[in-house]
Amino acid sequence: MTGPTCDDVRAQAADLALDTVSGEERAVLLAHLSSCTACRDEVRALGTVVDRLVRVVPPEEPPRGFEDRVLARLADQPQPLGRRRSRLALAGLGVAAALLVVALVGAALLRPGGDTRQATMVSTRGGEVVGEVTLTKKPAGILVAVPGWTPAENRPYDVRLELRSGRSVALGRLQLEQGYGGYGLGKIDPGDVRRVELLTSSGDPICGADL
């Protein structure tokens, strides 16, 4: 079975940007986008149009006390994770996740100015910024950080890498705990990685980051 062509995907790019396609259609389209930068850029451009359309909604004063309720909720939260990159891997992590991350990327992440690359992780559906991914060189590994993003906080996801050669590599299954997880890259050179994606068990990308 062959996938859709670029023309097929371009025809449905608006539907994808607006999130008006069915789950099955979405899976087919996203599979194409995962390996086609031009079509991905097209959908991203249309996503920007959608964002601007949302802005036509007139402002409206919220109910009395809204500001106080928001600020009270913010004040009740523990210090959010990832505020300082040098502490990204450790703040608030469960013991198992912290050990895993430290084993993979510890020294590189904890040393300011270490040999790392970071990029914003964006949800495939809707283009929402949900966290970030960090690649480390020594040891070679990735750290996914999507704390607070409900779909991914404590679930396993398959990791797929897109290399600069255009080749896709299924890295393995990543267990996220409190939105954090790490994985070793084995023999893959971190410098060759241009995109990291998390996939559901059915193979649908749920979020990704361009490095």
Partner: peptide, 29 residues
């Protein structure tokens, strides 16, 4: 709306100005 501000607070440090303005990002959330 409250939850939108919570998300902004949690993920504010990953906001990328190259991808658009803060208000567009916040309203998209």
């Amino acid at each position: 709306a409250q939850e939108a501000f919570m998300r902004a607070w949690r993920h504010g440090d990953s906001f990328d100005a190259r991808r658009g303005s803060v208000v567009s990002w916040l309203l998209a959330i």
